[in-house]
Design a protein around this nucleic acid. Sequence first.
DNA 1: TCCTGCTATGCAACGAGTTGCATAGCAAGG
DNA 2: CCTTGCTATGCAACTCGTTGCATAGCAGGA
Lengths: 187, 187
Amino acid sequence: MALDHAILVSLLEKPGSGYELARRFERSIGYFWTATHQQIYRVLKRMESDGWIDVRDVPQQGRPDKKEYSVAGPGRDALSAWLGEPIEPESVRHDLAVKIRGAAFDDPAALIGEVERHRRAHTDRLAHYLAGEARDFGEPGRPFDGPPDAERELQHVVLRGGIAYERMMIAWLDDVLATLARFEAGH
Amino acid sequence: MALDHAILVSLLEKPGSGYELARRFERSIGYFWTATHQQIYRVLKRMESDGWIDVRDVPQQGRPDKKEYSVAGPGRDALSAWLGEPIEPESVRHDLAVKIRGAAFDDPAALIGEVERHRRAHTDRLAHYLAGEARDFGEPGRPFDGPPDAERELQHVVLRGGIAYERMMIAWLDDVLATLARFEAGH
DNA sequence: TCCTGCTATGCAACGAGTTGCATAGCAAGG
DNA sequence: CCTTGCTATGCAACTCGTTGCATAGCAGGA
């Protein structure tokens, strides 16, 4: 179970509250891991009582206080141990693929709108990734020729993975649309 | 929740027992949906008591009897209704991406072996898909120019999606390996 | 003033998914 | 004969993930 580890990594990149983590899981981390605030608060509570993370009460003005979490020694060790052990290739769950195969027993053409909707979601996300890449990793921001920064480089390669995934999906959804079009009424 | 619907689609493609379904979920269906025999038996029981599927006891020689399930009217209706309603784009969970970003706080080069292992798993799966494509959708098996068979065409487009996914993953893992190599000891 | 909306945290209940274990018949090999 | 292994089905316990709801302070607009 990697939610623990996803949270640890995020807190190592930058300490923050449960709420802030939930927001990150809607953005950057959300590109490869989803979690609701409920899961996050529950895991934070458990990791704190296990001594994996430290809490610090931060009073704020103009908004409610927050608890800022940061990774403690045991948390770092747990992450390190997890990094060292092999994980299984992810188990896949593509609702849309189920729908496409199921469409053979219904009206295939009726699925076109749904597929187009998904295609839009993927082009939107691709645009979002590309904007993020230009902002955070664009040439202008890197005029110095210092030593490579591991954190930055590794974030970039993960983002490139997201970009490759979205491009692949868009191309495939075009393939799906072309296939569905062949079954349109009258043919 | 689409496990119900994945099972319905599979039973429409071909009626079978819980055990046979479990095997399909290790093969063709498993390319886009995973499920253990426990989940399958549980769902079959519920769908049967809801009248979505019919059972038929099939005595066998040389092996235990089996219960063969097939889709009944209400099951077909339920599938049809589900096909008609929009679904959310899948939520992603990539353990490997978490590990890669986490590696910045450990030894990045130590991840190389793990990434290579995943790369091998993906090349194996790609080879498997391509063999299946050649077997089931190769030119020799389609010398007739009749009307397009929806079931077959849609299975093929889903398989092409799997192939595109594996190719994308292999290319990305090469990118990851090149990135990790830059952090190797001494650099 | 009241309503809406954002930050911030949390409980309780439920449903889905995982893991360990159990049974039972039959085949094949040592 | 005994063990291993495959087909075939299932229970029980547990963990993980989702959903609905609740609280509470403060900001901004109608």
